[in-house]
Design a protein around this nucleic acid. Structure first.
Lengths: 188, 188
DNA sequence: CCTCGTTTGTCAGTAACTGACAAGTAGGAG
DNA sequence: CTCCTACTTGTCAGTTACTGACAAACGAGG
């Protein structure tokens, strides 16, 4: 059983987000997070390798979902469309997660150290996409460029949707990928 | 006069790169860097806000060069071509800098903490490119996508050229941007 | 009840980073 | 040459992120 473990981990994440929202990331110590979660500072570092990591946990799920989608995509599709479809398949999960993702993103936006970590996570995800494309026979350079630009479109869509949900996430994704193809087409 | 200042700063950068190559980033303390540069640890932190930053200094020069190029580009050009031209104008400076950039890149590649910082610097540069494009009347979304994909092409070209200079930087840049434009053609 | 594996607490230590203040050092005004 | 000023550096004390080692609690199973 990993019952207690999951409890403590979840409590730590909740306590961290609360405190970061109340006092800001820099004015919150790991000891305070641990105290609010009812454990000691040492236990915090047993669950998370560093203070930043407490806000970055869903990346593994995202990665497996995306790479799975890519592997299963019909073989006739070009890399851009493969990735677009993979990102669209995330839509329901993201929408269900919005109430957590929104305040979390506010904290990240206010904290350079967390922005750095987020960029690293995005880069790791992009790298996984690149590998998944190469496994489909896409050339190295092309895989890199396709993964990078699609990730940029996805990030833009997600952030603008978190900022203002009046336009749905699906529409944002469509708009971003339409713009992407327009960019490459008109520029010749 | 900022004579002593520049001396100390330069010495610190040199000492840091040396030590990182000898022992690795993690096994090098800021006190050791300072000692090799002939100053105290406190002085290190007067010149650099944190330990990582000692390896990231040329970003301002890069940014001004790129944004300047973009602002001066002929108005008929599309965003991709504007950025391509801007990056090509960096070629001589980059080639002159290779003997420093090469070992530096090795250290970064071996150190996750430095990779994070580099991603943050690249993201900041990309943001500056986005603003420069918007100043030319490019729409927000299109500017974001164009800046991001061109930066990806540039980074790919630079890294692969640092890794193996048998193919020149100019050729790498050409190849990356050619591939970029080919992305859509086959992708439908 | 005992035992074993897992989780947690305790403690001591390292290293990044900061603020406050003192000391040196160069350059210009008199 | 001397004093004054501005800038750079050293010193010191302190906070906080993070780690290793060891002991204690605690729940499951024999």
């Amino acid at each position: 059983m990993a019952k207690k473990e999951d409890d403590a981990r979840t409590r730590l994440q909740g306590a961290a987000l609360e405190l970061f929202r109340e006092r800001g990331y820099d004015r919150t110590t790991t000891a305070e997070i641990a105290a609010r979660a009812g454990v000691t500072e040492r236990t915090f570092f047993r669950y998370f390798p560093d203070k930043r990591e407490v806000l970055f946990d869903g990346q593994v799920i995202l990665r497996t979902a995306l790479t799975g989608s890519i592997a299963q995509a019909p073989s006739g599709l070009g890399p851009l469309d493969v990735l677009f479809q993979a990102f669209r398949s995330l839509q329901p999960a993201l929408e269900a997660n919005r109430s957590y993702a929104r305040p979390r993103q506010d904290v990240i936006a206010a904290t350079p150290a967390l922005q750095e970590r987020e960029l690293a996570k995005i880069a790791a995800l992009t790298h996984a996409l690149t590998l998944a494309l190469k496994a489909r026979g896409v050339s190295d350079l092309r895989a890199v460029l396709a993964a990078d630009v699609c990730m940029a479109a996805f990030v833009w869509a997600t952030l603008s949707w978190l900022d203002d949900p009046k336009v749905g996430l699906g529409d944002r994704l469509d708009a971003a990928f339409r713009e992407l193809k327009g960019l490459l087409a008109e520029n010749g």
